[in-house]
Measured scan of single mutants.
Amino acid sequence: TTVKLGDIKVTFDNPEKAKKYAQKLAKIYQLTVHVHGDTIHVK
């Protein structure tokens, strides 16, 4: 599962960890989390 934020891409083996990371980023940057299959976009 890949978390994308602009040019930053972080890949996790564990989808749950990816989701938590995405939510953490979203909170920090006051953005929202969008899940598209294996990719989680923070924008």
Rank of each mutant, 00 (worst) to 15 (best):
T1G: 04
T1Q: 04
T2G: 04
T2L: 07
T2V: 12
T2P: 03
V3L: 03
V3S: 03
V3I: 06
V3W: 00
K4Q: 13
K4G: 03
L5I: 15
G6M: 07
G6T: 04
G6E: 03
D7W: 15
D7I: 14
D7R: 15
D7L: 14
I8P: 00
K9G: 05
K9E: 13
V10N: 02
V10I: 14
T11P: 04
T11C: 15
T11K: 12
F12N: 00
D13S: 12
N14P: 01
P15A: 11
P15M: 12
E16Q: 09
E16I: 10
K17R: 11
K17M: 13
K17F: 10
K19F: 15
K19P: 01
K19V: 11
K20W: 11
A22W: 07
Q23P: 01
Q23Y: 10
Q23M: 11
K24R: 11
K24M: 15
L25F: 02
L25I: 10
A26V: 03
A26P: 00
K27T: 08
K27H: 09
I28N: 04
I28E: 09
I28K: 13
Y29A: 04
Y29F: 11
Y29I: 06
Q30M: 09
Q30T: 05
Q30K: 11
Q30L: 06
Q30Y: 08
L31G: 09
L31H: 04
T32F: 08
T32I: 11
T32D: 07
V33R: 00
V33A: 03
H34T: 12
H34W: 11
H34E: 14
H34P: 00
H34Q: 12
H34R: 07
V35Q: 09
V35E: 07
H36T: 12
H36F: 12
H36I: 15
G37L: 06
G37A: 06
G37P: 03
G37V: 05
D38L: 09
T39L: 09
T39D: 03
I40F: 07
H41I: 14
H41C: 14
H41D: 07
V42Y: 03
V42T: 02
V42G: 01
V42S: 01
K43H: 13
K43V: 15
K43I: 15
